[in-house]
Nucleic acid binder design. Structure first.
Lengths: 186, 186
DNA sequence: CGCCGAGTTGAACTGAATCAAGAAACGTGG
DNA sequence: CCACGTTTCTTGATTCAGTTCAACTCGGCG
């Protein structure tokens, strides 16, 4: 889940105040586990500084589902919305400070403030569109194209995250990614 | 885009009335093109009877992106939300009657009726979760598993739609799908 | 220095794509 | 109701992108 700076909805002062009041800022050291599999993830993390990674274990392998950096949200998406135990882990890629917004608070603010609910809708809509694009990519692009797309969207990703995670995010193996990078280096 | 019968939000009478008033029901014969590439798709189609298929042309090949049947929505998702020309065609799989809801009307009702906006949010959220599952499927499942998943979700799909469209929806070739079906027939 | 995690490289293997041809089903008009 | 063309589906042979498994390199760090 992700929020673009295109978000054009202004929240009223009182809403911002209420938000600030019911919000906690937490700092996680690099490598910390923020959410564990099996937990109910009933909060959103809005990242102020650093980065978080959502992943899950598939047959013992670590599969990255989502990266989030400054100004973006993460949560365990199905756990949050369906109120089921999380299949995901979320960990800090680097030392990270994040605003923690619990679902209760969000639902409360949505009920009180029209604008807040509209903002929610916008964020969910953007996420939906993002996922839709990812599907097109997965369906038709070669490993090479997938990697290059990622680079255009997040040029700095290779500095921040080890290749294994990038590979699993793209749905390819580490070895394939390594070969791709070799080719484009020439 | 899809609406589950789990949708638990009640719309007030007045909202339903307003909705009914600004809504048109159209009937499309089998094979009719409902939306054409390049058009602005600024409406939602809610299917009463029959089925619609969203597809696009990728290097001249017909690629199915979405099926929708009774009680479900379709639109050209990026065109609708981003107000850009549609990359998709939408066609009637069978003779189909559908409610046509224009974006204007929807936005108007959302502004007036809280419940309507909540319903929108719910639908978008469900669609987002659905897409997320599709991504997991595309990333890790074999052609065989993808097909079997589809069958559990839409057991009747093979009666309604030719295999080519099912194949492109799953991101596999017609030939592969045929072979899969042969194996499971034994 | 030597270990360890991260990345690279190579070789063999495999699931699915592609290309090509034929069989079934289906509809339409005579 | 049958003949014919079209569309849909099946089958086979070949090729290819990407996986798997295994060994090797490199850079840090106790």
């Amino acid at each position: 889940m992700r929020i673009d700076n295109s978000s054009s909805i202004d929240l009223p002062q009182s809403c911002l105040a209420a938000l600030a009041e019911s919000t906690v800022t937490l700092t996680f050291p690099k490598g910390a586990t923020v959410v564990r599999e099996g937990q109910y993830c009933n909060q959103l993390f809005f990242i102020g500084q650093g980065g978080l990674r959502a992943y899950y274990l598939k047959d013992g392998r670590d599969i990255t589902d989502w990266f989030a950096f400054e100004g973006e949200f993460v949560c365990s998406i199905r756990s949050y919305f369906l109120k089921i135990p999380s299949e995901h882990y979320i960990e800090a890629i680097e030392s990270t400070t994040a605003l923690v917004l619990s679902k209760n608070v969000i639902d409360g603010l949505s009920a009180t403030y029209r604008a807040f609910e509209q903002l929610s809708l916008q964020i969910v809509t953007e996420t939906m569109l993002h996922l839709q694009q990812q599907i097109v990519s997965l369906k038709f692009e070669t490993a090479q194209q997938k990697y290059q797309n990622l680079l255009t969207v997040r040029p700095d990703i290779t500095q921040k995250v080890p290749l294994t995670h990038i590979a699993s995010y793209l749905g390819i193996t580490l070895e394939t990614l390594s070969r791709i990078r070799k080719k484009s280096r020439i």
